[in-house]
Design a protein around this nucleic acid. Structure first.
Lengths: 344, 344
DNA sequence: TAGAGAAATTCAAACGATTTAACAAGGCGC
DNA sequence: GCGCCTTGTTAAATCGTTTGAATTTCTCTA
C-alpha cells in the first residue's frame, strides 16, 4: 500500500481561478511578455496565493531536460567519506545550484557497469549530463560515450587517446613541483607511493622519475610501490615495504595526502622522526593536512575549484555554448613541517 | 541553442515491432502475468534488441513517484568533505541503490530555506522523501514538515517536542560511556569541547556533566567550550582557550574526532605529551582516527549503519509499511593510545 | 454450433506541463 | 465599411508512460 500524497496545485487550477486558459498561465509563468500586464499580475498573484509549484516531472517530460546532473564516483570503500571526493562534489554542487540544476549521486560499482547504468542514466532522462570523478584505467566502458557524443566530462582525470572531455589538475606539473622541492632539500633517495590505477597517477610517477633522472638521480635510488585504494592504510603498508627494503631512503613522496598520513604514521611508529630522519610529502592539501603532526607539506590542487569549473564546463556544453573541454589547472606547493633537509 | 539529443526508443516502437499495442508492451515490461508467454518473449526480445530504456520522467509523471530521495545536509563549509557526512551518505546510498532509488543532494543554505526549497523539492515531485542529516537547533523550519506529514526523516539528530521522525546514535549513552572511561582512568579535571548548535550535542554535554557529578566531580572541574563548526580548527582553538585558563586539566573530551584531532595538535604544539600529560578522547571513530599520532581513543558510532538504516526506514514509511520512526543506535568505546591514566 | 466464461489484448483517458498555430478583438487607413 | 495589422488569448497536439474498462479472441461445455 503506497502512501497517498496530497494532490498538488496545478496550472489548471490557477487558470480557473483567473478565468484564463492553462496556456496563458504557462506563458506567464515562463516569463512571456506577450501577455497583457494586468493578466500577468493576476496569474502571478494566484500562483503565489495557491503556493503553486510546477511539477518537474511534467516539465522534464515535455522539454526532454531533467535539469539534473549525474555525479559519478568510483566504487572505493565508503567513497563519500573521502575528502578528495567531498571537495570536488562541494564545488560541483555550488555551480550546479547556481544554475538551477540538481545533483544526482552515483557510484560506479559492479552493477552500475554490468547493467550499463552509466548510459541509462542519460538515456532514461534522469540526468542531462554526467560528471565522472577520478575514473580509473579500468573504466574502459567510458569509451562508449565517445561514439554517442554524450554530455560527459571526466573530472580530475582523462582518458589518453580518447576524445572524452575532461578538466583536471596538471599532474605532470604536480610531479615536477614535488620532485624539485625534494631535490632542492638534498634528497637523493626517494621512495614513491603512487596510485597506479589512474592515468593521472601514472603520469605523476613517470614525470617524477623523469625530473629526478634529469638531475642525475639513478632509477635505483627511486624505489616505488603502487597501490589502488589511495588511503592511509595503503600509505602505511607501502612505507613499511619501502623502508624495510631501502633503509637509505630520506624521503617518501606519496601520491596523495591520505597515503602520506599513513606513511608518517608508520615512520613515527618505527621511532623515526619526520622530517629529521625521513621527509614526507603529499598531494591534494586536504583540510586535515594542516592538522597532522607534523603538518604535512603538500601540493594545493584546489579540488573545490576543479569541481566548480568542471560543472560549469559541462553546463556550457549542454547549452551548446561549447563543444568540448580539455582543461588543466595548476597546482602549488604548500610548505609545512613534514619535509626538511635530507639527513646526511 | 540547446543541444539536441538523439531521440530515444519508446514503448510504441517496441509495440509496432511486435505487432501489439503499447499497452501490451507496458504490461509485459512491468511483469504482468496476464500476457501470453509467447507475446511476453517477443516483447522482451524486442526491448533488448532496441536497447529500450523507459523514460523515467514519463513514468514519474503518471505514477507520481520519482524514485528519488533527497539527502540534505547543513550549510557547513565544504560540507561534503566531512567524513562524518560522507560515512552517512555512503550508507544511505547503498540502501537506496538496492531499493532502486536515486539520491539527490541538497545543502540547506540560505536560499534553500528562504525559498522553501525544502518543501518544494517534495512538492514539485523531484523527490519522494527527504533525509536530513544532522540538522541544527536553528533549523526550526523543519517543523513545517510536521503538519503536512511529509515523508521526512532526521538522520543522527532529532527535534525535541516535535513528532518528526528520526534515527540517531544515542548521544546520551555516548556521553555516559565517555565519562565512565575517563573517570575510570582517574581523571578529575576534564575539559569539554562540544558543538552547541545541535540537540544531540547539548544532550552529550548535559549527560556528561550529570555522570561526572554523580561520581562526585564538581562542576568547576569541568570547564567547557562550545563551538559550531565541529572541525579541527574549532578543536584547536577551544583547547587553547581551555588549557590556558585551566592548566590543571588532565583530559580533553571532544564532541567529535575532528575536534579531538585539532585538540591533540594544539597540545603537541605546546610540547605536551598525549596521553601522559593530557588525554584526548573523540567521538565518531572516523577512518583517520586510526592513523593519528597517537591513535585516537574514540566512540564508534557506525555512521555508515546510521545512514543505511535511516534510508531503510524512510523507504518503509514511503511504502506504507511503517508510519513513524524514532530509533536510537548504541555507540561503543574504541580504545587507542590517546587516553591513559591521569597524571598525578 | 451456439453461447458462456476465461484469457488475452487493446482503447482511451489520464498525468501536468509546453508550444505552435489559429482565432478573436481592436485600431487604423482609405 | 472593408481589409489589414497588432495584440492578446486559447485550442489542440505533444511528451512517454500507466491503467481500468472495453473489446476481441479463444476454449470449453451443453
Amino acid at each position: 500500500m503506497i502512501q497517498k500524497r496530497a494532490k498538488a496545485v496545478t496550472i489548471k487550477e490557477i487558470a480557473s481561478h483567473c478565468d484564463v486558459s492553462p496556456s496563458t498561465v504557462s506563458l506567464v509563468l515562463n516569463g512571456s511578455q506577450k501577455i497583457k500586464k494586468s493578466t500577468r499580475d493576476k496569474v502571478f498573484k494566484a500562483a503565489a496565493d495557491l503556493e503553486y509549484q510546477p511539477n518537474e516531472m511534467a516539465r522534464s517530460l515535455v522539454s526532454s531536460r531533467s535539469r539534473c546532473l549525474s555525479v559519478t564516483v568510483p566504487a572505493l570503500n565508503h567513497v563519500f567519506s573521502d575528502v578528495y571526493f567531498g571537495e570536488i562534489i562541494s564545488g560541483i554542487y555550488q555551480e550546479a545550484q547556481e544554475a538551477g540544476y540538481k545533483i544526482l549521486l552515483d557510484i560506479a560499482q559492479e552493477s552500475f557497469i554490468a547493467e550499463k547504468e552509466y548510459l541509462n542514466i542519460l538515456r532514461n532522462r534522469r540526468a542531462d549530463g554526467m560528471l565522472y570523478i577520478a575514473s580509473t584505467v579500468e573504466d574502459r566502458f567510458l569509451l562508449e560515450f565517445e561514439e554517442n557524443h554524450d554530455p560527459l566530462l571526466l573530472v580530475n582525470h582523462y582518458f589518453p587517446g580518447s576524445s572524452l572531455n575532461y578538466l583536471s589538475v596538471d599532474y605532470k606539473q604536480a610531479a615536477r613541483l614535488c620532485a624539485e622541492h625534494l631535490l632542492k632539500q638534498g634528497h637523493r633517495h626517494i621512495g614513491l607511493i603512487v596510485g597506479t590505477n589512474t592515468f593521472t597517477g601514472l603520469d605523476f610517477r613517470d614525470t617524477f622519475f623523469k625530473v629526478c633522472e634529469q638531475k642525475g638521480i639513478s632509477k635505483t635510488s627511486l624505489p616505488w610501490t603502487g597501490c589502488s585504494d589511495w588511503d592511509e592504510q595503503d600509505g602505511y603498508t607501502a612505507t613499511r615495504k619501502l623502508m624495510s627494503r631501502h633503509p637509505e631512503l630520506t624521503a617518501i613522496m606519496a601520491g596523495n595526502d591520505r597515503m602520506a598520513i599513513g606513511a608518517m604514521r608508520y615512520l613515527i611508529n618505527k621511532g623515526l622522526h619526520v622530517p629529521k630522519d625521513v621527509s614526507v610529502m603529499g598531494v591534494d592539501n586536504i583540510p586535515s593536512a594542516k592538522f597532522t603532526t607534523p603538518g604535512l607539506t603538500t601540493l594545493k590542487m584546489d579540488l573545490f575549484e576543479v569541481g566548480r569549473r568542471s560543472c560549469k564546463r559541462l553546463l556550457e556544453i549542454l547549452n551548446g555554448r561549447r563543444t568540448e573541454c580539455r582543461e588543466l589547472l595548476e597546482p602549488h606547493v604548500i610548505l609545512r613541517e613534514s619535509t626538511g633537509p635530507a639527513r646526511t
